[in-house]
Amino acid sequence: MHWLKAFLTSSVGRKFVVGLTGLFLCFFLVVHLAGNLLLYVGVDAYNEYAHKLHSNEELLIIAETLLFAALIGHILIAAGLTFTNWRNARNKSYRTFDSKREDRTTPMSFAPDQTMMLTGLFVLIFLICHLSDFKFGLGWENLGESYSPAQKALLVLENTWRQGIYLVGVLFLGYHVSHGLQSAFQSLGLNHPKYMPTIRRLSVLFGLVVAIGFGSFPIAGLVRSQTNPTSVEQVSPVEGGEAVDAETPHSPEH
């Protein structure tokens, strides 16, 4: 398998894998967000979605395995590349550096493309917290089986710490994918004057959608915790469509 090894150890091949896994994770984000938004439709819709998701165990395992593999691959290879770049590329840094890109709107040191490793790291921290909340239920053991997925989600989101972590996390996530999505297309070699400008715009839009879409949940949680908190003993069913929300409790990756 010399050729495959060569591919996977080359800079271009590794970047291809990062791009491919990144695109897959972006696709997952879309699905995940769509599921979450059901909370705004109503608790029942959300609960039904969660139960349906769990009704096919085999499919879930396959999906989760794929997702974890992509996530771990994405992180390890990207971190590896970054580490090599840091160590090898330049043994002496510039005294000053200034971008020549005319389309840069953010200062160089904060630009999404310059901070992928950093934003990725924050996303990872957020993800660990998120997974521990929803996938493994760490810290929420006392809730037991009697709570519906929606109730669990609401409880988590009304926690002040979680609100902070989740909000910051998804903002970083949005920032990360706003560069990541179009970067993935570039790494996969999908760049053409016909559609690349659109992809670049879509990528920023996607970042915004991710940040606002997911970010709306902890904010709504904050509002709800101030006005109408969910109690642990007696869970008040959310009224009508203006339900406050939660994250998918058992959606594929959690």
Partner: peptide, 13 residues
Amino acid sequence: GFGSCTNTYECEA
């Protein structure tokens, strides 16, 4: 020993 491309497009500019 060149680094890898991380699509920051500074090269193009």
